[in-house]
Structures are given as C-alpha cells and as structure tokens.
Amino acid sequence: MALPKALSRSPWRSIDRWLPQIVVSPLFAVSLFFVYGFIAWTVYISFTRSGVMPNYTLDGVGQYVRLWATPRWQVALRNLVTFSVLFIGLCLVIGILLAVLLDQRIRIEGAIRTIYLYPMALSFIVTGTVWKWILNPGLGLERVMHRAGFESFTFDWLVNADFAIYTVVIAGVWQSSGYAMALFLAGLRSVDDEVLKAAAIDGAGPLRTYFGIVLPMMRPVFMSTVIILAHLAIKSFDLVMALTGGGPGYATDMPATFMYAYAFQRSELGVAAASAVMMLVTIIAIIVPYLYSELREGRR
C-alpha cells in the first residue's frame, strides 16, 4: 500500500514510507540469525567430528552413521513411531467423539468443555508428575484395584521397559485429547446451520447427518489437528522427562530426549546435532506442505 504521491513529499514522509520495512527488519534479522543461522550451525556441526567441543573441520556423514548405528537412537525412533501413532490416533478418536457429543444441544456444554480442556493449561511436567503417581507400581492404580478385590491385578508399566512408552501415551492423550475436541468442536460450529436444517428436511437422522455430511466437511480441520498433534509428538520432551526420565534405562527415549542427553549429559555434540537435524527434517516433511497449502488458501 503506497502512500498517495501528494503526501510523500517532505523528508519525514519518505522515512515514514520506509518505516514498515525498518520495523520488520530487526525481527527479520533475529529470525535469520537465531533460526536459520542456528539451523545452519547445527547442520554444519552434524557434518564435523565435534565431540565435547565443536570442531569445525568437515567430516562427511560420519556422525549420521554413528547416530543410526546407536541402539539408543533406534529405540528412540521406534518409540516416536509407537507414541505418535497411538497418541494421534487416540486423540483424534476421543476428540471427534467428544466434539460430536458436545454438539448435541447440551445445556451445560460450557462447563463440560472447561473440564475437558483444562489439562491443556498444565505443564507437561505437572501432567507427568501426576501420572507418575497414579501409575505408581504398588501405591497407585494397582493398590486401588487390589483394594477393590482384584488381588492378582498388576500394573507395572511405568517400570517395565516393554510397556513404559504406553504410560507416556496415556498421559499425553489425557493432556491433549481435549485440545483435539476443541478444534473439532470449533470446526463443527463453523458448519452453516442451513446445511443442518437441509439435512433435517431431507430426513437424515443424527448419525447420517454427522457421518454423511458434517464429518466429511471437517477434512481441513482433521488435517490441521493431525499436523498439530504430530508436531506435539515429535517435540515431546517434557512429558517423557517428568514421567519416566527416558527410562527404565533408555526404554522410553524419544528423539527429543536423546538429543538432550547427547548434547548436555554425554557432550557428544556431533551426534546430538545429527539427531536434531533428523528431527528438523521430519518436521519439515510434515509442516512445509501444510504451511504451503494454508498460505495459498489465505491469499485466495
């Protein structure tokens, strides 16, 4: 939006004219340095022989070879896949179910929505702390079941290397499924009322209306929700740290905790950088097509 010619004569005006660029440039510079510069640095380090200290001599893909040969990284990746699939799947199912149910002329909808969504306001550390206590082998759920008469009930997932990752899923779903619900409910509410009236006149019952008409219209919301949840899953760090600390052993490590451990505890900068780059690549593969379509839509 250029200023009208008549207004732009005085020197003041010409500065005014460049002000938008001047205002944005520090942000742009910050973004260039702290995002793109840092990414470049990390990528660079991942191709060097850096150990405890950065080493700026290029060394090919050695760190990546080491990374992929590390059993702990493979566990982290397997965990990421298990966690993401279950976490996203369960959040979607619960989110859609609750959104559809809440859309049924519930008088106390506001109160129920508040309850479903409050975990989202908590820190993952708090969530992890609570679930760590609930799932406590011995004093937690197990004892509740014992007292209820199920003497043989055992629940030791938290300390069982084969099952510990599922406790992360349980806590993660508890925290984020309300969020999925909110996104879907907002999507449902954006459906034109007249479409629903038309369906009522056409004679469609509630099930038919939702499955035949409304939910197919939710495709964009569905996509965004999956992206957001996937993003949460890949970045998940706090929850694992609070709930299992990556343990037992490194049974519940995820790429994020792996990277942290290698960067700050084991001081293997090269491997840490390589794992961070792998995370970045994964996110880019998911986010960029999504952002591209979003921006294109926004311009239309």
Binding site: E194, K197, A198, A199, I201, G212, I213, M217
Partner: peptide, 14 residues
Amino acid sequence: IAMVFQSYALYPTK
C-alpha cells in the same frame, strides 16, 4: 415438505 434455503445449504462434500 421440501425447502430451499437462502444460502442454498448444499452439502459441500457431495
């Protein structure tokens, strides 16, 4: 009865 709406209310995915 049948009804025609102001926004037409067509089902966008069909």
